[in-house]
Every structure is written in C-alpha cells, then in structure tokens.
Design a protein around this nucleic acid. Structure first.
Lengths: 156, 156
DNA sequence: GCGATATCGTCAACCAGGTTGTCGAGTAGC
DNA sequence: GCTACTCGACAACCTGGTTGACGATATCGC
C-alpha cells in the first residue's frame, strides 16, 4: 500500500467536501442558491410523515435543543410547518411543506448528477467497489454534528 | 447502481467520521487522550522549522486571529513554544516542542492502524480500489475550515 | 381519582471556532 | 524623519453545538 494512513483519511474528507461543493453548485443551478445540504439532511430526517423535535434530534444525533434550532431555521426558510399532535399536547409535529418536497427532488437530482459524474470519472467497476468499501467502513455511523462548511453561507 | 446518490455522499462523511473517531481512540491508547486530529494537522502546518502566526493562518486557510487562537491552544497543551524572531521584533516564531514530535509520530502510527483495520475489513483489493477512486474524486481538494467534531472533546 | 414520575419543547447560559474591525508596536521606503 | 505597511493582540459578534432548569402535559401506580 503506497498511501500513508493519514492520506486516506484526508481523501475521505476531500471527497466529501468535493461532493458537498458540487451539490451546492447543482442546487444553485436548479434555483435554490441558498439551500445547503444540511437542509436536505434535516428534511430527510423529518421524513414524509413528519416527526417531533425530539425525534429529529435523535435521528440527526444531536440534542433536542439543537434540533429545535434547526427546526426554527427550516421553518423560517419555509421548508417545514409546525402542527399539533392530537394525542400529545406537549409535542409538535414538524411537517415538510410543498417547497421542501421540491427542494428534496432537486437535491436528489443534484446528488445523482454529482455521483454519476464520479462514476464516469473513476469507472463503474472501481466506483462500485468504492461504495461497497465505504459502506463497510462507515458502518452506519451517524453524521452527528455537521461540519461548519456544510452550512457556510455563499460569499456575498 | 443500487445506491442513491445522497447515500454515497453520506457514506463518505460516515467513513471520515469513523476514521477520526478511531484515530482518537488510538491516540488515547498511546497516551494522548486529549489530542485531536486538528492538533496534528496544525502541527504539520507549522512544519519542522516553525512558522509565524500569519503563516500558520495562510497555511490553514483561516484568518490570522483564528490561527492565533489555535496557536494559544497548542501552546497551552505543550505542543508549541513561542520564540522571538531576531530579524523582526513584531513577529513570533511558533516552534514544535519535543512533545509535539512525539504526538506526530503517535498520530502516524494511529493512522496506519486505523487504515490497516479498514483494509482487513474490506479486503485489500477492494480497499485499494476505494483509495484510487477517492484520490480521483477528491482531486486534492483542500480541507479548508475543519469540521467541528474534529476537535470535539471526549465525553467525561 | 390523584400524586409521583417521566417526557416534550423552550429559555438561558455557556463553549468552540470562526469572522471582521481596531490598534499599538515595529519595519520599510522615499 | 515621515509615511505607509505588516505583525500580532484585543474586542465584539456569529453560528452551531452543549448542558441545566423549568412549565406543561402524559403516564404509571396505588
């Protein structure tokens, strides 16, 4: 193995960042210049049926307070609406808006484009091997607290 | 392609995080329980001959104020010493201590162990394919602004 | 039915790491 | 020598995370 260990880990970070940057470009092209992948992740976590703030926190691997802040941001951006839960008057049901569904669709398209580009770059066979290997290595590790540059505002 | 695009990007993040967590574990075992990869990263940037705060900021891609904070942290942890530059009495020369050299050596060992573990998990052939693919995808993208969980303190 | 206990979401305080702006000290150019 | 620039420090602020406390509500046990 020619690569030193630290370089492999650095490559993972670089590839991830490359993907995020590319996706941001795709989303900007599709009319969501301010959308960050973190929005998509959170909306995915909310799911088509909605979820409460606590559940969102668990799914994202952060505290419920952090999840509440995220939810507020999403709400202000018009991506989620708060509904009440009939069965539990303490709980708040976060539900995706139509705008969120559109963003998710655009995001899925963007991801496919980015990843298809990668597949073409590295070759289908090697690409599939990479994905298999990543799946083993990553071992369903939750993202947890998302990197700062995931949500960095685009330069004004 | 069975994997949706977004999952591939998620796997990259998960694998990176897995590597960082594993390295933290290795470093803790080797007697550096508080060391984070970001320390090694900054020490690498300082280099064997040392550098000034401004240079450190440029090399890490952050402002000199942020570099100064990093340098203070490194100094408090005993990894760097401040020396004066005879040619310029404004400047401060950051220089690695012996302890820093030891940390860097331990860090290299830790990275090797982590990556060897991965290689064993996924098989040498597939692993090499993954690294090749990552090198193409990452395309020497610089890390830039480091993720927050890179420096997260270990739970007490 | 009712008290004890647990959970939901919010507020407040704090931390880490980043940013910009300002400023004194020191260097360099004319 | 005066001016302009650079180095590093300080202060203020932003973002996104954390923990702790608390009111409101559910749920359990008797």
């Amino acid at each position: 193995m020619s690569e030193p260990g630290w370089r492999v880990v650095l490559l993972l970070a670089g590839a991830f960042r490359q993907g995020v940057d590319a996706l941001n470009g795709e989303l900007a092209e599709q009319g969501y210049p301010g959308a960050r992948p973190v929005h998509g992740f959170a909306l995915q976590a909310i799911g088509p049926d909605g979820c409460t703030i606590n559940e969102l926190g668990q799914r994202l691997g952060v505290s419920k307070q952090a999840a509440a802040k995220t939810a507020t941001g999403l709400e202000n951006a018009g991506y989620v609406a708060r509904e009440s839960v009939p069965a539990d008057r303490r709980a708040v049901l976060l539900r995706r808006t139509e705008r969120a569904e559109e963003l998710l669709a655009a995001s899925a398209v963007g991801f496919e484009r980015v990843v298809d580009g990668w597949r073409r770059q590295v070759g289908a066979e090697r690409f599939d091997a990479m994905v298999e290997a990543l799946a083993i290595v990553a071992d369903d590790k939750p993202i947890g607290d998302l990197p700062g540059w995931l949500v960095q505002r685009p330069p004004p």
